[in-house]
Each structure stands twice: as C-alpha cells, then as structure tokens.
Design a binder for these strands. Structure first.
Length: 543
DNA sequence: ATAGGGTTAG
C-alpha cells in the first residue's frame, strides 16, 4: 500500500499555483496513490502531451512508478483527448514501451476516433500497424470516409476485409463507395463493387442507379446509360440531375442531338429543370464539335427565355467564339458579362487573350494581359502558352522563344504543351534544328512526348528529305503506344517517293489501307508520287 | 460538379 499522501495533499491544497501545475498533480497522483484514478491522470496527461513538446522523453523518467502501459489507461486518455492525432502519437509511443499490448478495445476506440475525424491516412496506418480487426460499424464508416477522400482502392481493400468477416455494407455505404469511385474516375472499381453488391443481395436504389448511369457515360457507353434510365423511369424512379447532365453531355459528344433534346424534355417533365450545368455542357460540346453558331443561338435563346448565364457559361461561349475566330462577337459578350456584374476571372482572361493572339492582335492581348495581372491574377503556364502560341502562329517564333527562356526566371513551370507549341512553331518556319533541340530538351526533362510533339517533326523532316529520321521518330511514337493523326503517314510516303523509293512508299501505303487510316484527300497525291517515283501504274488490284 | 493552353493540306 502506498503512503497516505496527507502531507503533500495539504501542501498542494494550500498552494493554489502548485495544484494548477499538471506536473505536480501527476507526481502526486502517480507516486502517492495506489488505486490510480485513471480519469484524473489521463486528464492531466492530455494537458502535458498537448503543451509539452518533448514529453516522450521526459514522461517516463519524471513518473517512474506509474504504469502508462495499462491498456485501461489509454482508453481513458482517448476519452479526454480532443485532438485525435495526439492520441495516435501517444498510442505509438506506448507501443514502443515494453509491456504495452494494444488490446482490441483501445485499438478500436482509437480507430473509431480517427475515422470520425476523417483522418483516413492515420486510420490506415493504424490498421496496417496493428493488424487488429475493427468492429464492422467503424470499418463501414471507414469505407465511406475513404470513398469521400477519393481513396477508391483502399476502400475496396477495406470492403474485402469486411466481406471476409461476413459483414455486408448498408446501401448508404454502397452508394458512398460508388460516388467516391465516380469522383476519381475509377469506373473499373464501380463495376467490381456493383457485382459484389448484387451478390450481397442489396437492392440498388435510385441513387445507385444515378451513379451507374454516370459511370456508363464516363466509359463512353452513353447508350447503355440511356437504356438504364428508360428502364428505371418505367419503374417510376427518377435519378438525380447529375445523371441526366452526364447523359446529355455524352450524347452531345456523339452529336446525337435528337437524344439530347429528348432528355431535356424528360428532365422538364420530371421536374428536373435543366440548369446552368446542363446548358453549359450543351454549348460547350456544340462549340467543340464545330457547331459554334448553333451554340451561340442556344445561348441567346436561353437569355431570351430568362435564364441568367453564369460566369462559366459566358467563358464557355466566349471560348467557343474565339475558336471560330469570331473575336468581335466574343468581345461583345465579354462586355455584356461585365455589365451583368461578373468580373472576368483567370479562365476568362486566358480565353480572350488567346483569342486576340490567334488573330494577331497582340496589342489588345497585351492590354488584357496587363489588366489580368493588375487584378491580382498570376501569370501561369497557360497564359504563357497562349502568348507563345499566338506568336508562333504569326511567324514570331523568336519572340516566342524569348518567352520560353523567360519562364524559369519568373518561376513559371514549362509543361508538355509549352514544348509542343514551340516545336510546332519552329517546324512551321523550317527551323528544324531548333525543333529537334527542343525535342531532345523535352526528353531530358522527363516529359512523355505526345502525338502533338511528333506530328510536326515528322512532317517537316520528310519535307526536308530526312525521311530516315522521320521514320525513326514514327517508330518511337508507335513504341510509346501513341496513335498518329490522319495525314502524318502521307508525309512519309511522299518523302520516300521524293527520294525515289517507290517500293517502300507503296509498302507504307498498303499498310495504311490495311489499317483503314486513309485520308482520302491525299490519296491522289500519294498515288501520283508513287507512280512518278516508280514509273509504274498503280492499279487498284493492289488493294 | 461545371470553364482556359497543343494536330490539318497550298
């Protein structure tokens, strides 16, 4: 039995400041009492680990007789510690002490606290470190938590852990999982999970269907998504707007405007009025698929019907007009947007600046560029790329290259598009040495070249008679699994023929036929080159 | 949730 701490107690009670000091209290409680009051001590320890930076080193030597490794003590501490990371740190400290056996109760309590704090990484760390089995309820909210944070793969792992324990998820968690996978574009996992869901015998609800439809759209399976929608509509279920919007966007991409308008009608009839998100996608894809005029008409119709386009819609429309080089119209919308009270943002500025650059109005572009900076928007890779692209389009590659060299000094990162823009610009001007130097530089920097990188290089090399180099670039491109654009192969054939190698030209041509990548516009030129080079008549028997 | 930068023929 411990000594009755009467003298110390009397001292402490008389000395208010000493009693306020947690160290003193602990020393009293741990050395002078046997039946340790865990509640009191843990409250004090909480204070210490919160305020004292190197408590791990001082705690044991300061209080040699207290048994910190009693699991009951840790459970008590957890109750009082608001900041779960302090508890975690304490837990790992305990684990390093001899004699502490993390018991399932404290592990589970800590795990639950971490999950509640949405500290998925820490929760995962704890799981991996201790290998304990959390109770199903915590594990289930852990799965929901992982999905929310975009950790789809980890969620699946946790799911199989639960499944192994014979527990099945509630529909809420299934939906959270599907939604989480959708957010990070992991449709592959969605289909696995959905299969599992069916096997568990959990009935999909209307929310589930919404996610499935969206997943089908992401997989470019819009028609299947549409069929699923029709099917559930018959059953009286109406998925949320997001599913409709994805379907509409998907059909726009496929230029299936009949379905688009049908879906818009369904939305209205089901009290899902199409919103800015819906229309923005329609206009976006109309512009991207070369129907900018229709896009503009739709945009104006919407305004006539009382819809108020938001800044994103305005930006989309301005961008569409700029791609068609209708800069005047774009500028009109720009001012209309400002009149309506929207301030141009980074996206709007970059779009408009590129528009001006493309038509060679560099003065206007520079004024806007300055305005953008004055408004506090930073210069970015995108804004630099836009200026460089404009300059390249107008034969001012030297100025573009000047910007390129300036970028690192301003701390602006160059990316693949930066390189591609310049490579294309130099190629266009026949500056093949500069282009290939940039290409080499790009590889040294560790970028993965894209089709946009190779195409201008191959074409220009062929034109200057360096067909061998062009062919090696072609192989390089193919080895990276990149698809060539229509027309690139034509240059190689014509280049080969210019060198008098009709036979190999023919080989390449037959290869194109086999792969059905013929660009019929150039076929006549190709056949003509081959026959000129080989002085033979090409008959379609070869085909 | 939504928007911005890189292919194409004289």
């Amino acid at each position: 039995m411990a000594r009755a701490p009467s003298s110390i107690l009397i001292f402490l009670l008389r000395n208010h400041r000493a009693w306020q000091n947690p160290n003193t209290q602990i020393r009293y409680l741990t050395t002078e009492t046997k039946d340790s009051d865990f509640t009191e001590i843990s409250q004090q320890i909480c204070k210490i680990i919160r305020t004292k930076p190197r408590w791990e080193q001082t705690l044991p030597s300061d209080y040699p007789s207290f048994n910190f490794t009693d699991p009951q003590f840790f459970t008590e501490l957890l109750k009082h510690q608001r900041n779960v990371f302090f508890s975690l740190r304490f837990f790992f400290w305990l684990s390093s002490q001899n004699g502490f056996l993390p018991n399932p109760v404290s592990c589970n309590a800590l795990f639950t606290a971490l999950v509640e704090a949405k500290a998925y990484n820490a929760a995962k760390l704890l799981l991996g470190h201790t290998g304990f089995s959390p109770d199903p309820a915590s594990l289930e909210s852990y799965i929901g938590c992982l999905c929310e944070g975009g950790y789809a793969q980890e969620a699946v792992d946790a799911f199989y852990r639960l499944k192994g324990a014979g527990v099945c998820l509630s529909i809420m968690t299934w939906n959270a999982a599907l939604s989480g996978c959708l957010k990070v574009g992991r449709t592959d996992i969605i289909w696995i999970l959905y299969q599992e869901m069916i096997e568990c015998g959990v009935a999909a609800d209307v929310e589930t269907v919404g996610y499935l439809i969206q997943a089908l759209c992401v997989d470019n399976n819009v028609l299947k998504g549409y069929e699923l929608l029709r099917q559930v509509l018959v059953d009286g279920l109406v998925p949320g707007k997001a599913a409709f919007n994805k379907l509409i966007s998907g059909f726009c991409k496929e230029k299936n405007y009949t379905r688009v308008s049908e879906l818009l009608h369904i939305m209205i009839s089901k009290n899902h009025d199409p919103d800015n998100y819906t229309y923005q996608e329609v206009i976006n894809w109309l512009c991207k698929k070369g129907k900018g005029r229709e896009g503009l008409r739709g945009f104006n119709d919407l305004k006539d019907r009382g819809y108020a386009p938001d800044i994103v819609m305005y930006t989309t429309m301005i961008h569409g007009l700029c791609t068609m080089d209708y800069i005047g119209e774009a500028r009109k919308l720009w001012f209309e947007m400002i009149e309506k009270g929207y301030r141009p943002n980074e996206y709007t500025y970059n779009t408009m600046i590129l528009g001006f650059c493309k038509i060679g109005s560099f003065e206007e572009a520079k004024i806007l560029y300055k305005e953008m900076c004055d408004r506090g928007y930073k210069e970015t890779t995108v804004s630099y790329n836009a200026m460089m692209r404009g300059l390249c389009l107008h034969g001012r590659t030297d100025e573009a290259y000047g910007l390129f060299t300036e970028m690192p000094h301003k701390g602006i990162v160059r990316d693949l598009i930066t390189y591609n823009t310049l490579i294309q610009g130099f190629c266009k001007e026949g500056k093949i040495v500069e282009s290939t130097n940039l290409f080499r530089d790009l590889l040294t920097q560790g970028f993965q070249p894209s089709t946009y990188t190779y195409t201008p290089l191959i074409e220009r090399l062929c034109q200057v008679g360096a067909v061998q180099e062009a062919k090696s670039l072609w192989n390089d491109m193919k080895n990276r699994g990149l698809e060539s654009t229509f027309g690139t192969q034509d240059y190689i054939i014509i280049g080969l023929c210019d060198q008098g190698d009709a036979a190999e030209g023919m080989e390449w041509f037959l290869d194109m036929l086999k792969r059905q990548v013929i660009h019929w516009k150039n076929t006549y030129v190709i056949l003509w080159s081959i026959s000129l080079a080989g002085r033979t008549t090409i008959s379609l028997k070869h085909v």
